[in-house]
Amino acid sequence: MRLEPKPAPSLAMSILYPVVAIVVTFIIAGVLVMLADANPFSVFRLVLKGAAGSQFAILETLTRATPLIFTGLAVAVAFRAKLWNIGAEAQLYMGAIITVVLGTGALPLPAIILVPLVMLAALIGGALLLAGPAWLKLRFGVDEVVTTLLLNFIVLLFVSMLLEGVLKDPMALGWPQSPKIIAEAQLPRVITGKRLHYGFVIAVALAIGLWFVMKKTVLGYEMRAVGHNAEAARFLGMPVNGVLMKTALLSGGIAALGGFSEVAGLKGSLTLDLSPGFGYTGIVVAMLAMLNPIGVVFSAIFVAGIFVGAAAMSRTAGVPSYIADVMVATSLLTMVTAIMLSRYRVKWK
């Protein structure tokens, strides 16, 4: 069996392949649903209803998509330069920690100054957290995959330490939780009384901004060049190490904004379950979008819809909500396969 490059696929083909990937994902999920003695069609209808069947459902899906846009963008930026940042989870928590530290009254400033300030601080914290592994990679040749993965565990333990120590809310009985941030540090809600907050607006704006950076700026061009062929980029005189470090700072900072947005926009405080794996799911979001920043917004909404819809479905149909995680993981594998098949012809010989 061997692969031969195909001519560039037509628009129809480049849409058809991803669609087939999603269909295959649903077929696999359907089989698993049948194992739970449920009818796949009614289950998927319930998922769709839970994700988009009402104003409440749609707002809930967009709210859940918000952190995924941030982590998806963080991964998309890093992977484009072939910097394997698997530590968006840790960077997100770093952003959340900083938001809580600065947002609980330490800085008595009006909202118009405090919110951007906290946001910037979170960004810097996340950037520095990924700068560490990036520096180790560039200076000593330490593989960033393992270091960023291990940092996820270290940072989560650090959060646990803070929540049982200096950041413990004296008012919360037993449950490890930080105090609530002050009103001036909060992001406003998009619609009063609903959970969707301005973190979503920031995320979408950031996606558009990054699309511009990737497509139209020298840095974006350099990142793509380094990702495509670091040796050739070096040969052409590009500062490869500098580009990778800038990429790391950008990626880590973006992921941390996800943590800022969750605390300042939605939760108000830091807990150990702030992120149910947003950092890891961000990898799927980025790959489904083929690392395109604008695409990340749509794939994040798609993935969030599966999670929100499956949670609602699970309450009524009795199929474990882990079906959502299975579907998201399956869609990653089917999608990368589909993209490959759209570019190469498989010769069985």
């Binding site: 890891y280 799927v284 882990y322 995680d325 299975v326 998201v328 993981a329 399956t330 990653l332 594998l333 990368v336």
Partner: peptide, 8 residues
């Protein structure tokens, strides 16, 4: 992907 799939 395999880690996410196997775990879930």
């Amino acid at each position: 992907g395999v880690t996410l799939l196997a775990t879930s």
